[in-house]
Amino acid sequence: MPLSIFEAILCALNTHPILNVPKSDYTFLDLSIHNSELNNINVASSKDLEAYIFNHIEKNNAKAAFGGYLEHRGIYKRSTYFNEQNPKIERDIHLGLDLWIEANTSVFSPLDGKIHSFKNNTNYGDYGPTIILQHQIDAFGFYSLYGHLSLESIENLKIGAYVKQGQQIASLGTAKVNGDYPPHLHFQIIKDIQDYEGDYPGVSNQLDLEFYKVNCPDPNLLLGLG
């Protein structure tokens, strides 16, 4: 299927790494319902899931793991924030790219931009501390979201403040503050932010998926991992 104009622009951009990890030091991680290894893991426990993820990274001689775009995941069933009675409206399809690495790891802006908004999203299973940047490439604008950050990451921020490409913007949080997940970055591209501030859906249901696939294309088009 040919790329949209938006996707083609993302592919053409020259970005700074979001984490200080060479592309060759990432390994792919599958957390979908199709990964049979997860049948033996208590995915409702951030501690058990963290042990599985970091063992996977170590076994593959990597420093970080990536994956998750449009994955149909079972891990959201632990939280009523995602789980509703009608399976057609249950949100369990992941819209961002997850980068799994130790807490306190620094996060860098891939492009020039400015701070659109920030917020501590404290629902169980939510993003925790979150930053959204606004980017303008010639006449084309879009947004990038960074979730599961440390509390310190959203202290002393100012909406509208400019951010340079390669500037450290945050660090990763622990399960205590990041929505109760193993440490990782949720990175998401958003074409139209709508009326959201400091938050944007990172998990979709089946009914809304086609809209989100267009509005939130694969972040790996920008990062080029794997």
Rank of each mutant, 00 (worst) to 15 (best):
residue 141 G to F: 10
residue 144 S to F: 03
residue 128 G to Y: 02
residue 131 I to A: 06
residue 122 T to W: 04
residue 148 H to Q: 09
residue 134 Q to S: 14
residue 132 I to A: 08
residue 136 Q to I: 02
residue 125 G to N: 02
residue 124 Y to R: 11
residue 135 H to R: 02
residue 148 H to M: 12
residue 145 L to K: 12
residue 140 F to T: 06
residue 128 G to T: 06
residue 146 Y to A: 02
residue 151 L to I: 14
residue 143 Y to I: 01
residue 134 Q to H: 09
residue 154 I to Q: 02
residue 123 N to I: 12
residue 135 H to A: 04
residue 144 S to I: 08
residue 141 G to C: 09
residue 139 A to F: 09
residue 137 I to G: 00
residue 120 N to P: 00
residue 155 E to F: 13
residue 159 I to V: 15
residue 154 I to S: 06
residue 146 Y to C: 03
residue 132 I to L: 01
residue 126 D to T: 09
residue 126 D to F: 11
residue 130 T to H: 14
residue 119 K to R: 12
residue 159 I to Y: 01
residue 124 Y to C: 04
residue 153 S to Y: 00
residue 151 L to F: 05
residue 159 I to T: 13
residue 152 E to S: 15
residue 122 T to E: 13
residue 122 T to Y: 08
residue 141 G to P: 00
residue 119 K to H: 12
residue 147 G to Q: 00
residue 150 S to G: 01
residue 151 L to S: 14
residue 124 Y to A: 13
residue 119 K to E: 07
residue 132 I to V: 15
residue 118 F to N: 01
residue 150 S to W: 04
residue 152 E to K: 15
residue 128 G to E: 05
residue 125 G to L: 00
residue 128 G to W: 06
residue 148 H to R: 08
residue 119 K to S: 09
residue 141 G to I: 08
residue 154 I to R: 09
residue 126 D to G: 05
residue 125 G to A: 02
residue 134 Q to W: 08
residue 147 G to N: 01
residue 143 Y to N: 13
residue 156 N to W: 02
residue 121 N to I: 09
residue 138 D to K: 14
residue 130 T to Y: 06
residue 130 T to V: 12
residue 136 Q to T: 15
residue 160 G to H: 09
residue 145 L to A: 07
residue 159 I to D: 04
residue 139 A to M: 06
residue 149 L to H: 02
residue 156 N to G: 04
residue 125 G to T: 02
residue 154 I to A: 06
residue 125 G to I: 05
residue 119 K to C: 08
residue 158 K to L: 10
residue 149 L to F: 07
residue 127 Y to G: 10
residue 136 Q to A: 08
residue 124 Y to W: 10
residue 136 Q to S: 13
residue 139 A to N: 13
residue 138 D to W: 03
residue 118 F to E: 01
residue 133 L to F: 05
residue 150 S to I: 03
residue 157 L to Q: 09
residue 134 Q to V: 11
residue 135 H to M: 11
residue 157 L to A: 07
residue 118 F to A: 03
residue 141 G to N: 14
residue 154 I to M: 05
residue 158 K to P: 00
residue 137 I to E: 02
residue 141 G to E: 15
residue 156 N to K: 12
residue 146 Y to M: 07
residue 119 K to F: 10
residue 160 G to V: 14
residue 145 L to W: 05
residue 128 G to Q: 03
residue 131 I to C: 06
residue 146 Y to P: 03
residue 147 G to A: 11
residue 123 N to L: 15
residue 122 T to R: 12
residue 134 Q to D: 07
residue 144 S to M: 06
residue 138 D to M: 09
residue 141 G to Y: 02
residue 142 F to H: 01
residue 118 F to K: 05
residue 125 G to E: 00
residue 123 N to H: 14
residue 118 F to Y: 13
residue 134 Q to I: 00
residue 156 N to C: 04
residue 122 T to H: 10
residue 158 K to Y: 11
residue 142 F to R: 00
residue 151 L to N: 13
residue 133 L to N: 05
residue 125 G to C: 03
residue 136 Q to F: 03
residue 127 Y to P: 15
residue 157 L to V: 04
residue 118 F to W: 03
residue 133 L to C: 06
residue 153 S to L: 01
residue 137 I to D: 01
